[in-house]
Simulated assay, not measured.
Amino acid sequence: MVWCLMKPQGFGDYWPDGEFVGWKEPLKKYYDNEMPHEKKVAMGMTKRIYYSEFSKKFSKDLGRLEAVECPKEFLTIKKYNNLADLIDTQDRLLAVSEALKSIIEDVEPEVHQFWPLKIISRRGEAYPVNYYGMVVGRFLDSFDYEQSRKENWRHSGDSYVPRSTMKKKDFSEMVMSAKVIGGAHLWREPKVSKINLYFSDELQERIERAGLRLFKRYKLKDV
């Protein structure tokens, strides 16, 4: 079986309100003094720096982040006491607790990128649980639109967009190709909008057994 995780709606324990601190300054220094010209050309930044071009790598299939591209601190506007084990931060960068990171690395080692991300409130209080920025390293095209219930979807450019009224039963009619998925445990589907991540059944079971808190998720159909 396959599971999908939806994006969190509104700020809270799954999406703490805040911003990166100390991220742009090192990037500007890197751009001015060390960034290869061919990389500036590839990212469309020959005349000036665009921080949004760096943050695209948080959620798109653009390769691993260099150390200078990884945010190190996330400053929240309020103190959070019970953050989920998977959270959204800024610019679609996901962060995971150490417990979730360990499970992901155990079932799928050396596929995804992690680095320490310190979460701090505006009062300077560090969140007591270790978190890590995460860039998903696997992108698949396993959604089978032809075998799915087409009434649940609309096209937008090259993407498929689920109806906003989709319920649990509707997601159970979302068909994924087992052949394309193969032995993958965690991935993104660039051609499907509004759905954040996809999990294998094994990863879902490990997360459930550990009692971890994640975004709302639905069981899909794989054939």
Rank of each mutant, 00 (worst) to 15 (best):
V2H: 11
P8G: 13
G12V: 14
Y14R: 04
W15S: 12
E25I: 11
E25C: 05
P26Y: 05
L27S: 00
K28I: 15
Y31G: 03
N33A: 04
M35T: 07
P36M: 07
K47N: 15
S52M: 09
E53I: 09
S55E: 15
K60W: 10
R64Q: 14
L65K: 05
A67D: 15
C70L: 07
E73L: 09
F74V: 03
K78Q: 13
Y80N: 07
L86C: 03
D88Q: 09
D91W: 14
R92K: 15
R92A: 14
K101R: 12
I103H: 04
I104D: 12
D106I: 05
E108D: 11
V111M: 11
S121K: 06
R123T: 13
G124I: 10
P128C: 10
P128M: 06
V129E: 15
E151A: 04
W153I: 12
S159K: 06
V161C: 01
M166W: 13
K168A: 01
V175H: 08
V175M: 11
S177T: 01
S177E: 02
I181S: 05
I181P: 00
L186R: 10
W187E: 03
W187K: 08
R188A: 09
Y198F: 15
E208N: 11
A210N: 09
L212H: 04
R213D: 08
K221D: 05
V223N: 14
